[in-house]
Amino acid sequence: MTPLIEVRGLRYRYDDGTEALRGVDLTVYPGETVVLLGANGSGKTTLLLHLNGLLQGEGSVRVCGMDVSPPTLRDVRSKVGMVFQDADEQLFMPTVLEDVAFGPLNQGFPPDEAAARARAALAHVGLGDIEHRAPYHLSAGEKRRAALAGVLAMEPEILILDEPTTYLDPPAQRSLVKLLVNLPQAKVVATHDVRFAAALATRALFFDKGQVAREGSLSEIVELFRWDWDA
């Protein structure tokens, strides 16, 4: 099977000199859900930002067989859908429908087609009835779903989620899990929430100081690093 994502020896240093990634390898196959665990500041977000070319470091990042570089960015970004931690930054358009249609419009779909895709994505995440609402009046759970819809409307092959459970109450977390397990896409999820991870993960990576310290099943990783409250 050909991998969807192949990262080899990735290094990245921020402008201020912080070495955020120090040689990271990652391979993701279709149908997998890979969970990234690790302390604050260990480099999870930085890695995710490389997966659709928002950051470009040393080493190689390949997505669906394409090298992530300026000429392929457009294609890469329609294959990789990214849901950010702060939904307020992701939902910047004045109405939910316009926001969800933003991606399809950038992909070059005509307005009516983009609106149709946006409506379908909203229905999929269970927000069919709020398309004309303004994003700032939504609850945290609704914001997260709307952000996810904005990505799903582009019909990506890979979903990237950065701490998707932040601000969500347990019922909202449960319904997010339900929604995610039923999506066919391969997923890469950075989270600190072990119960959430357990519901989704097929595999887990533990990050430490910009490197992958260990890779394996979620339970192994959680045991090994005592990455849970009652562990």
Binding site: F84, L105, A115
Partner: peptide
């Protein structure tokens, strides 16, 4: 925040041109 917004826009394929719904 503005940088974050731009990042989110870029992640969804924004390349400088705005298109609107009808």
């Amino acid at each position: 925040r503005a940088e974050g917004i731009h990042r989110a826009m870029a992640a969804r394929g924004f390349a400088g041109e705005f298109h609107s719904l009808r």
